[in-house]
């Protein structure tokens, strides 16, 4: 039985565009999926409280400051990811050519991020998990929703 309304302070610190300032990101995700068939549970909140700071640190290391929309998107991805890890679920492999669409450095960094979360849990995430997370950062960089600090204008080539 899932719990729709139980709330705890996630303390993820990823609320604002620069990593702080607005309400906890976890609660934004919880609100967004509250009416779905799988609303956020306290277990999800506990797991996100560990993963989201890792993601924020990862983004900072990549020189990305994620806008609100991208933060929410990454956090929703994180929610699905922590559930898969918890349930030992493994994504199907993705086509090899997809990996070529993401810079190698992003993939390497995403692998480190994924392992930082999974290894203490005795879980080894498949490469597909790494690619999907890396894609979030690649798209953010590509569309300008993940501006690098100091950028005056970012590439928006794929943005409609």
């Amino acid at each position: 039985m899932t719990r729709r309304t139980a709330r705890t302070t996630a303390g993820d610190g990823t609320g604002g565009p620069a990593g702080g300032g607005e309400g906890p990101l976890t609660e934004r995700v919880a609100e967004a999926v509250a009416d779905s068939s799988e609303p956020v549970t306290d277990t999800d909140r506990a797991d996100l409280a560990e993963l989201l700071p890792l993601i924020r640190r990862h983004a900072a290391q990549q020189g990305l400051v994620l806008d609100e929309e991208r933060q929410l998107a990454v956090a929703v991805h994180a929610l699905a990811f922590v559930r898969r890890v918890r349930h030992g679920e493994r994504l199907d492999p993705l086509a090899d050519e997809l990996y070529a669409e993401v810079p190698g450095a992003l993939l390497t960094a995403a692998r480190q991020l994924v392992d930082a979360y999974c290894t203490p849990r005795g879980h080894t995430a498949p490469d597909s998990e790494v690619l999907l997370l890396a894609l979030h950062f690649a798209v953010a960089r590509h569309t300008g929703s993940g501006a690098r600090p100091g950028d005056t204008e970012t590439t928006r080539g794929a943005q409609a």
């Binding site: 999926v33 929703v76 991805h77 699905a80 990811f81 999907l132 894609l135």
Partner: peptide, 23 residues
């Protein structure tokens, strides 16, 4: 469609209030 099946749907809800299912 995305890897986890949620980002686009949640964004649509956040921006336009759509009723969504995800994952």
């Amino acid at each position: 469609f995305c890897g986890s099946g949620g980002a686009g749907a949640v964004t649509a809800k956040a921006k336009y209030g759509h009723d969504i299912e995800f994952g």
